[in-house]
Design a protein around this nucleic acid. Structure first.
Length: 216
DNA sequence: CTCCGGATCCTCT
DNA sequence: GAGGATCCGGAGG
């Protein structure tokens, strides 16, 4: 797969990310997040994201957001300047990573849900030995975080500075899909919050699973 | 292919 | 004390 991204001055990129997550999220489709370490370099082209808002925007309260009830120790990076990482630990074993958006003081972030490993496939496979194909190296938010070696130690760090790089696509995605967010319980996961965005037809995007209906 | 349960512990109530 | 922005493997169709 051809990757076409363009370099951009960090301050220009940060300005772009300072919009709210719902408008920034689709612009991140096709972007490439790179992580360098002593182990090597892994780069992921983002194919699926979700927007989460904070309590500051009263016109769009987001009950699915970690920041819905205000700042806590865990979600503090969501309130920090655009371009930082917000990484959290969940289900007792998984990490998930967001790019913080919006101006400092608001809590707007984009969850990186899936991507394609475009550099460092071997290292990615070492980090995710259970992967059965290249497609699932970063096909899921926790898989993507593992592939890039992201943990809570990275939460609050700047994604636009060493050891990270973020490049937006040279041409923004002209077509993308949107729909309800995955795994969000309550109203926040309903069709009233169609804040999941993905590149149509990309094989790394998780197949949509409708919430299962249960009988009493 | 789909469905379902277990893993495992941090975070906030 | 409950539940989670998930993943994986096993059972069944």
């Amino acid at each position: 797969m051809t990757v076409s991204t363009s370099p951009m001055a960090p301050e220009q990129l940060r300005e772009l990310l300072s919009g709210d997550a719902r408008s920034v999220a689709p612009q991140l489709l096709g972007s490439v997040l790179t992580h360098h370490s002593h182990e090597g370099t892994v780069a992921v082209r983002i194919t699926e994201v979700e927007a989460y808002m904070g309590p500051g925007d009263s016109s769009h309260p987001d009950p699915g957001s970690h920041a819905f009830r205000g700042p806590t120790v865990r979600n503090a990076p969501m309130f920090s300047p655009a371009g930082r990482l917000y990484v959290y630990f969940t289900y007792g074993m998984h990490y998930c990573a967001n790019i913080v958006c919006g101006p400092a003081g608001t809590a707007s972030a984009v969850l990186l849900r899936a991507g394609e490993v475009v550099e460092g496939q071997h290292l990615a496979l070492v980090r995710r030995p259970t992967s059965k194909s290249a497609l699932d190296l970063a096909g899921g938010p926790a898989r993507l975080a593992t592939t890039l070696a992201l943990t809570t130690a990275d939460s609050g760090r700047d994604a636009l500075a060493d050891p990270f790089e973020l490049r937006l696509p040279s041409v923004p995605a002209t077509e993308f899909m949107s729909g309800p967010r995955v795994g969000v319980s309550g109203d926040g996961g309903s069709a009233a919050y169609p804040w999941r965005f993905w590149l149509p037809g990309d094989p790394t995007v998780s197949r949509y699973k409708a919430a299962k209906v249960r009988r009493a």
